[in-house]
Amino acid sequence: MLREITLGQYYPADSPIHKLDPRTKLFTTMIYIISIFCFKGPVAFAVITAALAMVIYLSKVPFSYMVRGLKTIVFILIFAGILNLFMTPGRELVSFWKLTISYEGAKNASLMLFRMIYLIIGTSVMTLTTTPNQLTDGLEAALKPMKKIKVPVHEIAMMMSIALRFIPILIEETDKIMKAQMARGADFESGGLIKKTKAMIPLLVPLFVSAFRRANDLALAMEARCYSGGEGRTKMLPLKYENRDRITYVISIVYLVAICVLRRFPF
């Protein structure tokens, strides 16, 4: 049952967005996030929406895939929306029973909802069009300046890619241990939260033991293949900027400037 979980929601397609360098995509996503938190006025809103729609269209990923990411946060969205709606003091808009919706409350709530939804959709465009490997490569390259302040950038990226490789293996193993424990009468389904949590112990202990054993084996195998950290390593798939990346950088900077300028003229 656990085997059905797929990690990394990469959607393979041949699109200009897929072909972009992961660093470009990380940068553009950053710009986009900044823009949805600092824009002002309906024109800027229209610009953001148009930009997002354009990127989604170019990416060739079905829109339903992007919306899927929203499902997990529906509860948070509703909760935050209601809080904002009723708890913001200001000019009264509607009032019934003991609840008052203020003009500012309605504005805050809709702004917040829109920001959250755009944030999720925008970032899922990146994860849907970038393989996990490219993503870690991109992060490693993007964070390289951090090396100067002793942040182990290469090690973090290596850990991420190894984690990605081992998640399916560990999930399979969890499944196996679960079945083995169930065959011996363990019950993972019934009872309250505390009982269920307690039932996880005979699952977690063997899982941890095996994970450490695997880690030890893997470390040995990596050493045997001459791994000695990031120094002096070459890349099989080196990141290289193409013209499309340069154009994307220019467009995204122009876009950010436009959003900032529009702050001055809040139409």
Partner: peptide
């Protein structure tokens, strides 16, 4: 163990 010596995905 073939699983524990393959590093990349």
């Amino acid at each position: 163990n073939p699983d524990n010596q393959i590093i990349a995905s």
